[in-house]
Design a protein around this nucleic acid. Structure first.
Lengths: 334, 334
DNA sequence: TGGCCACGTCGTAGATGGTCGCCATCGTTC
DNA sequence: GAACGATGGCGACCATCTACGACGTGGCCA
């Protein structure tokens, strides 16, 4: 592979001049510049990004650390990030932490070692990882999950409000005993969605029975097990609110296995949409998040922070939207 | 950020010794090594990957170039790649080419500039991109799609056979007029699946009517449009074989919009599974691909090629499996 | 007209942080 | 005493960027 020196020799100039032509920062005589361009074409010269990165002490890569690459919520978000990154001249690296704090820490370490230009993170755990990045001066944006104890740009959705809407909708549809399949207790999104659920019950003077709340792991399997527990233990609910998309799928699976018909004997609303929610039968009522927009916003915030590292961190909260479909349509009791 | 020289000073040794301790290549006296470890901890030393990469003329990153990050087929495949990469000490960068040859070329250029340790690619277009990598000495593995005109390690599934099985199944289920929603003509997978469809028809002496074959873009929208065309133009089929998962979803959507019941009035089999195929009503008969295994195999091949660059390229073909569910269950005519 | 200064260009030389080949040293063993 | 292995330091090297200074030109002022 040709280096900058080969080009310089071919064009009869110094390497510095070639560098100037490549980067367009300083002024170079037009005739010389043309000769350099010519030489670059002839040698099929590609600047060595490694050397440039070392010298500039920074890559042009953004790391995106997410907790589950298989969740369509994240893939759509990543698209939003990618589109902005592309436009701003950055590449995007995807890191899949699998909700594992250790794996997340490894990726953060890698981001530091590789001197990534920025990090967008949906953190599984404590603030330590995020703070490590901030201390090292790496621009960071938290997405989807707020990070307590870290001063960082953040993009969220109104989880509590969305959950409240969902549960209110179930109440208005006539369901009586509404259960909740919550997410992992340590995750802020799970806590907020649970609060929304409780708030709606309280507002409508429904008792908040502890037996009605189960916690899953935000995966399909967890949703299945939580649903099974709700069916087998204690007084059976007639509707459920599930705190994320994959757990909703799991719950539906369980209900199908048990032959419990939705929405007649069990109303179902899930948090976060699924691309084919309307193909599932019955079609699924969901609290839709603006996933693409979430990614876009985070990427824009990151670009701004890179441009202006010292500005105070800001938090953007996007709205959710209740999409009423068939799974929460209780047949009126005659 | 502390450099290797800071650590060397702190431990009272030379930078070379610190390097040896970090990399564990050469033997270092235990006492010295301990002092170095101590100094690294005290200074919170992180090796600068950029400098190492420059010197070694290689990063420890694998680029995975895929054509649609939103397709669960690819996300599962990526998991398989990641797990192997993780174990072998590599990080994985995801590049989303969106079936766009130009975008793909940009990512390939980036992989060359950043001197990626290896590339796994599901190429959208011609062999030029892959050959550029091979010429530069970058280890490459083609996945899911063979690359004609390039001598490269390849991992495929038996597309033709899988498609044949699917169509045979529809024939045996009693469907008469079986249509095909094929993929983009230029893609080898689309060509192979189409051939499997045609072969099955021929074997059962069904006429291969050109009117019964439409081509989509491997996305949901394309499946929807192809289905609509099949319904509106010419003699209507009573079953369809769709050449990938997202187009199957699109076709189902179209059928639902038109009120055409599946499997009574239209049998449906799709190529490639969907995580929640059994939740869609009716549950979906599919040709399942070993997606995770596909990724794993490609990653293993890449690791082998990196270890032994001169070995002749090999091709691995994995088997598909027909998963019979409800969407192809034709009610027997009384 | 001569001298000085500003400015546009361009080359030299170091800096970036690690890695590794080579060589010196030291202790051990035969 | 020679041979050998283990150990650790020196300095070149990776490809690029950039601070600094040199050089030439032209304008302006005395």
């Amino acid at each position: 592979m040709a280096t900058i020196y080969d080009v310089a020799k071919q064009a009869g100039v110094s390497a510095a001049t070639v560098s100037r032509v490549v980067n367009g920062r300083a002024s170079v005589d037009t005739a010389l510049a043309a000769r350099v361009q010519q030489a670059m074409r002839e040698l099929d010269y590609r600047p060595n990004a490694l050397a440039r990165n070392l010298r500039r002490r920074q890559t042009s890569i953004w790391a995106v650390v997410i907790s589950d690459i298989g969740n369509p919520f994240f893939t759509s978000m990543v698209r939003g990030i990618e589109d902005v990154a592309q436009g701003a001249g950055y590449s995007v690296v995807l890191c899949n932490s699998d909700e594992d704090a250790a794996k997340e820490a490894r990726y953060v370490a890698a981001a530091l070692e590789e001197q990534m230009a920025g990090v967008i993170i949906s953190s599984a755990g404590r603030a330590a990882n995020v703070n490590r990045l901030i201390e090292a001066g790496t621009p960071v944006v938290a997405i989807d999950r707020e990070v307590r104890g870290a001063a960082v740009d953040t993009v969220l959705v109104d989880n509590e409000h969305g959950a409240e809407l969902a549960v209110e909708h179930l109440i208005e549809a006539g369901y009586e005993r509404i259960a909740c399949i919550g997410g992992p207790r340590r995750l802020p999104t799970a806590q907020q969605r649970l609060r929304g659920y409780q708030r709606a019950l309280r507002a409508h003077r429904r008792p908040a029975d502890d037996e009605l709340v189960r916690h899953g792991d935000y995966r399909q399997e967890g949703g299945y097990q939580a649903m099974a527990a709700l069916l087998d233990e204690g007084e059976r609910p007639d509707a459920i609110f599930a705190a994320n998309n994959l757990m909703t799928i799991g719950a539906l699976e369980c209900l199908a296995d048990r032959g419990i018909s939705v929405p007649d004997r069990m109303g179902v609303v899930g948090f976060d949409d699924i691309p084919w929610a309307h193909l599932v039968r019955p079609s699924l009522t969901t609290v839709a998040q603006p996933t693409y927009e979430l990614g876009r916003t985070a990427a824009l915030l990151l670009a701004e922070r890179i441009a202006e590292p010292s500005r105070p961190p800001s938090t953007v909260t996007l709205r959710t939207e209740l999409k009423v479909r068939a799974s929460s349509n209780r047949p009126s009791v005659a």
